[in-house]
C-alpha cells in the first residue's frame, strides 16, 4: 500500500513537483470554478481555455517551449477576449454566451494557424495537453503567484462576488462594483487557466476548475462550503490522477481530469442532492 500510494512521491523529484503544482492549482482554481458554475458560465471557462491558445502559441513561436513568454501571451490573449466579449455583452443586445463564442472562435483559429505555421503536431499536442510531470521552477513559481493572487482577490471581493451572482441588479443599485467584479472575476478565470495550462494543457486546465465545483454542488448547499468541498475534491483528484498516471503510464493531465470526472460521477450518483436520492421511492412524507 505504502509502495503504491506514497513511494512514487518520495522517490522522484518530478512527482513531488507535479504534486505541489497540482495541489496549489486545486486550491486556486476550484473556488473560481464554483463561482463560474454558479454564474452559469461553466462553458465560458471552456471557451476561455481555447481563447488563450494564440497567446501561448505566439510565445511558443518566438521563444520555444518557455513558460514565461507562453504565459504572458496566454494572459494577453485571454484578457483581450474576456474584455471584448464582456464589453459587447454589457453595451449591446448580444448576450455574453454569444459574444464569448464569437471572440474565442476567432482567437482559437488564430492560435491553430500560428502553431501550424512553424510547429509540428507534437508541439501542438504539448500546448493543448500540457505535462504536469515536467513542471520547472518558473512554472511552479507562476502557480504559487497565481494561487496567492486568486485567494487574496476572492477573500477581498467575496461579498461582492456573492451579491453579483445572487442579485446583480441589487448590487448595481447600491454600488458601482458590479461591473468591476465581473471583469475581475473573468481575470481570475484567465489567470487560473494560464496557470494550469503548463501542467494540464490549455484544453484540460478548465477541467480542474469545473469538475470539482460541479461535483461539490451535489454535496452541499452553501457557497463557502462548496468552495471547500471543491478544493478537497481537486486535491483528491490530483493525488489520484498522478498515481494513476505513474502506475498506468498515462499522460498526467488527462489522468487528473479523469479522476475528477470519476469523483463527479460518484457525487452525481450518491451525493445527498444526487440522482439516487431522487430515485429512491418515498414512502413517507411530512405533514408540513
Amino acid at each position: 500500500m505504502f509502495e503504491f500510494l506514497v513511494a512514487p512521491f518520495l522517490e522522484f523529484a518530478f512527482m513531488q513537483r507535479a504534486l505541489f503544482g497540482a495541489l496549489l492549482l486545486s486550491l486556486s482554481a476550484c473556488p473560481v470554478g464554483v463561482f463560474l458554475m454558479l454564474r452559469r458560465m461553466s462553458l465560458t471557462g471552456d471557451a476561455m481555455s481555447h481563447a488563450i491558445l494564440p497567446g501561448a502559441a505566439a510565445g511558443f513561436l518566438l521563444y520555444g517551449l518557455e513558460i514565461v513568454p507562453m504565459t504572458v501571451g496566454g494572459l494577453i490573449a485571454g484578457a483581450l477576449v474576456a474584455l471584448a466579449a464582456g464589453t459587447v455583452a454589457r453595451l449591446t443586445v448580444q448576450k455574453e454566451d454569444a459574444s464569448v463564442a464569437a471572440f474565442y472562435l476567432v482567437s482559437l483559429s488564430i492560435g491553430v494557424v500560428m502553431v501550424s505555421l512553424r510547429g509540428s503536431s507534437v508541439d501542438l499536442m504539448h500546448v493543448l495537453f500540457g505535462t504536469v510531470l515536467a513542471l520547472n521552477d518558473a512554472a511552479l513559481w507562476l502557480i504559487v503567484l497565481v494561487t496567492a493572487v486568486t485567494l487574496l482577490t476572492l477573500a477581498l471581493f467575496w461579498r461582492a462576488l456573492v451579491a453579483e451572482c445572487l442579485d446583480p441588479l441589487f448590487l448595481r443599485s447600491v454600488s458601482r462594483l458590479g461591473g468591476v467584479v465581473h471583469f475581475l472575476f473573468l481575470g481570475l478565470v484567465v489567470l487560473n487557466l494560464v496557470a494550469g495550462f503548463q501542467a494540464l494543457g490549455t484544453l484540460l486546465s478548465v477541467g480542474l476548475m469545473i469538475l470539482p465545483a460541479a461535483a461539490a454542488r451535489f454535496w452541499v448547499n452553501d457557497v463557502a462550503a462548496m468552495c471547500i468541498v471543491a478544493i478537497g475534491i481537486g486535491i483528491a483528484a490530483s493525488l489520484g490522477g498522478l498515481l494513476l498516471s505513474y502506475h498506468a503510464s498515462l499522460p498526467s493531465g488527462p489522468a487528473i481530469i479523469l479522476s475528477a470526472g470519476g469523483v463527479y460521477l460518484v457525487s452525481l450518483l450518491v451525493g445527498p442532492r444526487g440522482v439516487l436520492r431522487l430515485l429512491l421511492p418515498q414512502f413517507r412524507h411530512r405533514t408540513a
Binding site: L38, V162, C165, L166, D167, P168, F170, V174, D222, V223
Partner: peptide, 22 residues
C-alpha cells in the same frame, strides 16, 4: 423583475443580509 437567481445556494438570511451593503 428581480434579477435574483433563485437557484443560487443561499439562505433567506443571506438574501436579507445583502441589505447591509450600504
Amino acid at each position: 423583475q428581480s434579477e435574483l437567481d433563485r437557484s443560487f445556494p443561499a439562505r433567506v438570511k443571506d438574501l436579507v443580509q445583502l441589505g447591509l451593503w450600504q
